[in-house]
Design a protein around this nucleic acid. Structure first.
Lengths: 131, 131
DNA sequence: GCAATTGATGTAATAACATTACATTCATAT
DNA sequence: ATATGAATGTAATGTTATTACATCAATTGC
């Protein structure tokens, strides 16, 4: 998935997220896109749904916000599990992938015949710069 | 923390969660407590805040809902990291603790001088019974 | 005893996040 | 050219959470 084949709305939303310092809520994205013609939350949510599907954007469940993927040129879904640190002071988000954790969770699920869908791993705290 | 020293509202909310089959939203808790005199969301949220603090209740970030801790007699905070599987079909939630994952996340955070606050691990999918 | 403080409660209003419903437009594949 | 599926526009509504302010209850220090 390259950012070339995005629709206008998807492109605008991805652009806003890519150029943002930190995660943004759907409504702050909407505000930033008023001048580009956005008028309703659904325009943002629809674009976000697609971007999430493409693996270009991640949703941070614990703060109801969205970030651009750290490596949008590759397919993030292919990296397996994605985890995040979220600085509660400056908002900085760091994305990482850990195969040990992934295997461990997979094992846990398999042992219980639990069919894994989406997995969320988010560490909230204070980043090095803000400590 | 035993459930003895809870206030009336905290006790009522904990009771509803303890006797529930699955996770409940704050507003469904409110509905279940109308007859006990609850009239506003804040009564629920305030009780939940305390119960979370006491480790008697967990918040499921990915579904905006709350569950009673699986072992309220012990202090859940003492077990370290808590992770969950959440069945999207029947709502069943299973709580578990994994030291390998915990150590791995701790290591990641330490390497980056990230001071860890609350960590969320939630696996959404389909449980054995619903597969 | 009785202020002073602290924690819990009651209530209303509002803010923040997300979806449903329905009409329309666009792309493209026959 | 037209049928189809995807994307869009807009309004209304639903769901989750917080702010603000008044009151009440328990505890502490004097």
């Amino acid at each position: 998935m390259t950012t070339q084949q995005l629709t206008r709305n998807q492109g605008l939303v991805f652009d806003v997220l890519s150029h943002s310092d930190g995660p943004l809520s759907a409504y702050s994205i909407l505000d930033k896109l008023r001048d580009s013609g956005f008028r309703a939350p659904l325009q943002v949510y629809r674009a976000l749904d697609k971007l999430l599907e493409f693996g270009l954007v991640h949703r941070l469940e614990s703060i109801n916000a969205f970030v651009a993927c750290a490596h949008p040129e590759e397919d993030c879904h292919a990296h397996g599990l994605t985890a995040f640190t979220i600085c509660e002071t400056c908002g900085k988000v760091t994305e990482f992938h850990d195969h040990v954790i992934e295997d461990r969770l997979k094992g846990f699920a398999r042992d219980r015949n639990f069919k894994t869908g989406k997995t969320t791993i988010e560490i909230r705290g204070t980043c090095a710069g803000c400590a």
